[in-house]
């Protein structure tokens, strides 16, 4: 089965039918997706700015992460679940959309970047936790994260102008 055929099957599900055919399905899911975006990207940026040494410089990096994590993760879950539902509903159009490919690529980069931070860079955090300006490797992950999430938002908005 090709990817396109899988997309066609996804669109035939009752969930997709509810989103595309009902009066409120799309509005509820798109609205939820936007609110999740505000919470997740809005809070992730603060963690990235701390890694860059641009904000809350007197607060340890580990504490900034620990305090923001529940909000980042909750917002991310809301955005991800509503995003998957929206994808299922318009799978073939998304599959053929360049901006969707760009968006997925940027999400992948953000994910790998977060993984590198947690499994590699954060291991040495004891050495620079309280530093106003963390070392270059940590600053790079902050910068890449801001860049990747910016692309996700811009490409996501561009999708709504090119898909329908």
């Amino acid at each position: 089965m090709t990817l396109l055929e899988i997309c066609q099957q996804l669109e035939a599900t009752r969930l997709a039918e509810w989103v595309t055919q009902s009066e409120w399905g799309f509005r509820i899911m798109a609205g939820t997706h936007l609110m999740g975006l505000g919470l997740s990207v809005g809070t992730i940026v603060w963690m990235d700015l701390r890694l860059l040494g641009k904000t809350m410089r007197t607060c340890p990096v580990s504490e900034v992460y620990r305090r923001l994590a529940p909000w980042m993760l909750f917002g991310f879950a809301v955005m991800m679940i509503s995003g998957v539902v929206l994808f299922v509903s318009y799978a073939t159009a998304a599959y053929e959309n360049t901006f969707f490919a760009i968006k997925l690529g940027a999400i992948l980069i953000a994910g790998v970047n977060a993984g590198i931070y947690h499994f590699v860079i954060e291991r040495q955090i004891a050495q620079w936790d309280t530093a106003p300006r963390p070392p270059l490797a940590a600053r790079m992950t902050g910068l890449i994260s801001i860049g990747a999430w910016t692309v996700v938002v811009l490409a996501g908005r561009a999708m709504s102008y090119t898909m329908f």
Binding site: L37, G38, G42, T43, A155
Partner: peptide, 13 residues
């Protein structure tokens, strides 16, 4: 519109 959405995330954050 994309920049408007980006600023929305900054405002809400």
């Amino acid at each position: 519109s994309a920049l408007h959405a980006l600023s929305f995330a900054v405002v809400m954050g």
